[in-house]
Nucleic acid binder design. Structure first.
Lengths: 194, 194
DNA sequence: CGCGGGAGGTAGACAGTGTCTACGTCGCCT
DNA sequence: AGGCGACGTAGACACTGTCTACCTCCCGCG
């Protein structure tokens, strides 16, 4: 009595989210979503002209979820900016690890490039939170705030990627999961306090 | 009189490489490759039991190409390790930008996870070159060499990704392409000499 | 009150895909 | 000479995304 009362559009997106979370990115077909939503394969077309539109809507949900988690973390961790930044980074990486399929979907460049549902813009608030914190901890000799934030974000994202496909342990010798993160933060922001 | 005299296996891979370079990752279908190689759609199966096997073979070619470029760079740039590392990073990013489809294919986690053709292992020599240089420039207070190299690799990879789908200029304000790279190298390895 | 019309969903067709299987068709080796 | 194995063909199957014709209600209007 929740999904049933929503419109079909919302049910389709919800079914897609479930699907990508449980079965992975490649399982998110138009027809399977329609099946799970209990409608014919042509029905989604009313709301999503093309498959990419539906996928973009699902990815949006992913960004909304991640953004909500990050904001929750920001509420939970009321400390110095450096600590908050570390918590943010952990939230980001935890999300990527726990929802691999969704994470992949969110950053599929063909979806972002399609411009459907202004997907790329959806990720901006997320980046803004990071950029804001970075600006607070930036030292005078560091790169400009925007560049510093971009470089750190790239590092985070790269760790999530490499971490996801398991080449890192193989290449670096199965290091602790947090070691890379700490190294990255220390590198960009200076050694962590105490 | 080059591809014609090779066996079908090599022709299939070559056709696949052409395809991914010119049309992108999504265009690399089994049947299209077979068509370009001038054989029936069932022929590839003799050499590649499944589509993933063929894709893995194509990705391998990509790793071979990138590795060759990196080694060429190492031959060309005979300077201090820091400078060589910068050159390596540029080669990596240039490759990602110039051969986007191939780069995506190479790091598709479903291919790497499939273990076909030991694809993941194919990337190790590449990482080894980076790790070797990193070890040379590492300062005593830095993280262990393996972690440092991993973190730097992740940063490189992340820059390549974010750079590829164009969110960075939007989020950071269209910074110079090299700024992020320099910031990353400086962060992990210390300020560049001179 | 009746009745058009549109919103919202169905159902079938089409081209394309990966995989599987049965079938040829050579050439090589005993 | 004869068989056999490597190599490639051809068709089927289930599945995909997209397109189009249809159907079926409900709502507002005359």
């Amino acid at each position: 009595m929740d999904a049933d009362e929503q419109g079909l559009r919302a049910r389709l997106v919800a079914a897609g989210v479930d699907l990508v979370l449980s079965e992975g990115q490649s399982a998110v077909s138009l027809r399977e979503i329609a099946r799970r939503a209990g409608v014919s394969h042509g029905a989604p077309r009313r709301y999503f002209p093309t498959h990419v539109d539906l996928l973009s809507a699902i990815a949006r949900e992913g960004f909304a979820d991640l953004t909500a988690r990050v904001e929750q973390t920001m509420r939970d961790v009321d400390a110095d900016p450096r600590t908050r930044l570390t918590a943010l980074a952990r939230t980001y990486l935890d999300f990527a690890a726990a929802h691999r399929g969704m994470f992949e979907l969110m950053f599929r460049h063909d979806l972002l490039a399609s411009g459907r549902l202004r997907l790329r813009e959806t990720s901006l608030p997320l980046f803004a939170v990071l950029a804001d914190l970075v600006a607070q901890v930036r030292r005078p000799t560091d790169a400009p705030a925007a560049v510093l934030a971009g470089a750190l974000w790239a590092n985070l994202h790269g760790i999530a990627q490499l971490w996801a496909w398991g080449s890192l342990p193989l290449a670096t010798g199965a290091t602790d999961d947090d070691a890379l993160l700490r190294a990255a933060l220390d590198a960009h922001l200076g050694p962590s306090p105490a």
